[in-house]
Structure formats: C-alpha cells, structure tokens
C-alpha cells in the first residue's frame, strides 16, 4: 500500500536532428515533450488503470513512478518520500515476460526472497507463492517450457513474493489469448482484493480498465496531459455492459479516445 502524489510532472527527450542549411550541415538540439504537467494523487491500496492511445507516454509515466526513468521537472512522492530509483517496494511487471530464462520457476520466484537465510523457510515461502498462482508441479521448469499465461503468472508470483507496497504493471496481458486474458484479469482483481496492494496498471484496453480499476486515469494529447481521473466505487465482479453508469462512462471514454462509434 502506498500513497502516491505526482506534482507537475513533465518529461522531455532531447532529440538531435541534422538540418541542412545553405551554409552546410548544422546540429540542432530539439526537444520532444512526452508528458506535460501531470498532477495526480493515488490513495492507499488503489488499483489505478492508466489508459491512453499507444505512444502517448503511459509507459514512460509508469517507468518514472517506478524509478527507472527520471522526470525532467516535477516530483513523484511515494508515502511522502521522493523516489530514489528502483527498489523492492515497487516491483515492475513487464509487457513481455521478464522472467530470467536461465532460472527455473522456483528460482525466479525466489529472486526476491534471497534475504531469508534459512533454506527450508525460503523454500516454503517460494512454494506458497507458486501455489498461489497455481503453478504447482512446474517449480523446476524453465520459462521456455511454460505457456504465455503461465509465464505471466510466474512473474506475478515473483513480484508478490517480495511483498511490495506497489505493483507496476505495464500492459501485462499483451499477447495472451482471449480466455487467458480474461482469467489473468480475474486473478489480478482477486490478488488486489486479497492483498490490498497499490497497483498501477497501464493498458490500452478500455474494458480491462473498467472491470479492474478503483480509479481510471486517461492520458492523451501530444504532449500527454491528464484528460480524466475518476474514482470507480462499483463492487467486483462488475457488469460493464449492464450497469447504466458504467455503460455511460464507457461510451464517454471511447468518445474521449477518438472512437465514438466503436461502442
């Protein structure tokens, strides 16, 4: 659980382009702004779904909050403290599997449990998380021997095992088939209800955001600004196609993202 405040966050990339002038070639430094004045506040234990068109800077924002990237200006406060790079309190789950391919499932899950000195205790803990994502029987398999969905679950187990305050998930359902996607979505919602950890979830899937989020944030424009930040207080499981308010919100979001006729 953590309380996250973003204040006036901006991110610029400097870009070097060669421009041909009459006098010859000259290097000109240009900057390309991705994020502009992002002000957001996420409450303790919230599952925040960040939506936006592709390339709008959702992942950049997530990487900055997780400490992998630095903002050009503005600040990120987590529990009142300025972030100081990546840490075990804020575990990042990647778009493509980031399991270490040379380690078995249990070695991967054990990555964050290295501080437990007692061998037996550590193994019990590893087993607990492997059981949690229902990968029992696959402890000594290597990632390449698992299906896409199982790889994501193993990565989720690895992330949960360190008991982080916040989970950052960058489009973790990319490349999964429809049914596996639905099942993983359900599992992430259950995990969130059970552990009450803060989750920052980047997605481009509007329905994912509506089903899962305690809060929906929509980024858009170039440079990206916050178009919407709304708290959703509907209980799970949600019926996004029959609950009138959710139907209305869904239509609104489709409109906001420029595809009004898709609903």
């Amino acid at each position: 659980m953590s309380h996250i405040i973003l204040a006036g966050l901006s991110k610029k990339y400097s870009e070097r382009r060669k421009k041909i002038r009459d006098a010859g070639e000259q290097l000109q430094a240009q900057s390309f702004q991705v994020l502009k004045d992002i002000d957001l506040e996420f409450e303790n234990g919230e599952m925040v779904c960040i939506l936006g068109p592709s390339g709008c800077g959702k992942s950049t924002l997530l990487r900055i909050i997780a400490g992998f990237d630095q903002a050009t200006s503005g600040s990120v406060l987590i529990d009142g403290k300025q972030i100081q790079g990546p840490s075990e309190d804020h575990i990042f789950v990647y778009q493509h599997s980031a399991l270490l391919p040379w380690m078995t499932v249990s070695e991967n899950v054990g990555l964050g449990l290295r501080s437990i000195r007692e061998e037996k205790q550590r193994e019990e803990k590893i087993q607990e998380y492997i059981d949690m994502v229902e990968l029992n029987g696959f402890e000594s398999r290597y990632p390449y021997e698992l299906s896409g969905g199982m790889q994501r679950r193993a990565e989720l187990a690895r992330a949960l095992a360190v008991d982080p305050k916040t989970l950052f998930m960058d489009e973790p359902f990319t490349g999964l088939d429809f049914l596996t996607h639905m099942r993983m979505r359900e599992e992430v919602v259950m995990m969130h209800l059970y552990t009450e950890k803060s989750v920052l979830f980047v997605t481009h899937d509007i329905d994912d955001a509506l089903v899962m989020g305690d809060r929906i944030v929509i980024l858009g424009g170039r440079p990206a600004t916050v178009l919407l930040s709304r708290k959703l207080t509907y209980p799970h499981p949600r019926k996004i196609t029959s609950e009138p308010e959710l139907v209305e919100l869904r239509r609104e979001i489709f409109f906001m993202l420029g595809v009004p006729d898709a609903v």
Partner: peptide, 24 residues
C-alpha cells in the same frame, strides 16, 4: 530488461554478475 529486474530486486553488483551476466 534483465538488468532492470536486477535493479528492481536489489541485486548486489556481485549478484548481477553471477545471476545475470554469466548465465546470460
């Protein structure tokens, strides 16, 4: 990405060598 995972799980410099670089 593997080095980011290493940073995320607070691997020491020695662990980055023995658990990431050498096996990779």
């Amino acid at each position: 990405t593997y080095f980011q995972v290493a940073a995320n799980f607070n691997l020491t410099r020695w662990e980055v060598i023995s658990k990431i670089i050498v096996p990779a």
